[in-house]
Design a protein around this nucleic acid. Sequence first.
DNA 1: CACATAAGTGAACAAGTGTACACATCGTTA
DNA 2: TAACGATGTGTACACTTGTTCACTTATGTG
Lengths: 207, 207
Amino acid sequence: MADRSKRRPGETREKLMNAALTLVGKGRHFASLGIREVTRQAGVVPTSFYRHFRSMDDLGLQLVDELGLVLRRMMREARANVLQADKLIEESVGIFVAHAQANRSFFLFMAQGLAGESRAVQEGIRSEMRFFASELANDLRRLRLMEHLSDADLDMTCDLVVRTVAFSLTDLLSISEDDDYQIGQVRKRTTQFLQMIFVGAGRWQSD
Amino acid sequence: MADRSKRRPGETREKLMNAALTLVGKGRHFASLGIREVTRQAGVVPTSFYRHFRSMDDLGLQLVDELGLVLRRMMREARANVLQADKLIEESVGIFVAHAQANRSFFLFMAQGLAGESRAVQEGIRSEMRFFASELANDLRRLRLMEHLSDADLDMTCDLVVRTVAFSLTDLLSISEDDDYQIGQVRKRTTQFLQMIFVGAGRWQSD
DNA sequence: CACATAAGTGAACAAGTGTACACATCGTTA
DNA sequence: TAACGATGTGTACACTTGTTCACTTATGTG
């Protein structure tokens, strides 16, 4: 009757995950979403939900996995575009901001999840951030930057950088999607933050 | 019948706000709380809710106001106890951690609200953080610290400091309330972050 | 092709939800 | 004391919610 097209495997699963993201993108908080609401948004009958997810928390966990892919794509692009260490910070922040705009709902979900309801989602996001930080540390080593820092101190620095950027996310996501002026402000300020951190790291010595 | 005691003005109002905080303290997300749920936890009939709040968002806003008081108390204590600039950072972080532990639910609410559902609550918390940062800038000026920084750069630094501390909140709140070792780790790491930032600020020069 | 399995559907139910209304009770002020 | 406004209560209604069950339909493998 309503099957106007053949069934693609995993299609409904995607539809459900996208539906959740869409609702988050519309300003809703993930923790307040219900199964029926999501299925409705996806144009699917409530029962279908259980074919793919055990609960909303489960859906959240699978979203975290996809979030990981988004972050990896972002890193790859950053590595490709940031060739010389000259404008390193400025360009990286630019790429980050661009990705945050392009995948707004995803990053909203991430920001929400950090203080979210599900312990598992929280831990998943935290883990993605740790991975991101460790990759950043690798890159800095590869570029022969901050060579005077011990491994532990470099990790600490990268952790601080990632946190700072993550916090900028909440700024970015709380302003209008196409307020270019404000977006520019956030980018500028974030760049300054990172510059200050790296100045500190440059002079850092363990005691 | 059930009025075993005389009515104190605003008693139910407090009970409702405390109930919401209690639920948040138990791991629930504020955005997922319902009116009935809160009134049940408060031991009050659902209708009473409307005598004090227009909606859940409204309750959230009033919680933000109280949060402001908590923060101000914390600042006052910090100012009283941090006499010499010597161990300034370490002691301040200590006081912060202690307050976060003592008012766990409040700070949980704050961390949630930063990426929360209600625009108004979000803005309220953001505003509290701005105030906090500006007070910090005042204190640093008063202590004759970072005198080489322009007002704008000092503001920027303090903003970064407050963000960093706020992010540590999510670390702190995601670990067990009485895992003293982990708490110590967070305190240590946060202290390092701030030290690195201040090293950067010490060498900072506008360009 | 046949068949097992995965994916989607619709109806149903008990429980929970927000909100409205009319009424009771308290504290205060005239 | 009388009357009033603020606060608390009980009942009711129309929805929404999560989950279950039995059923149909598509897909891929032997």
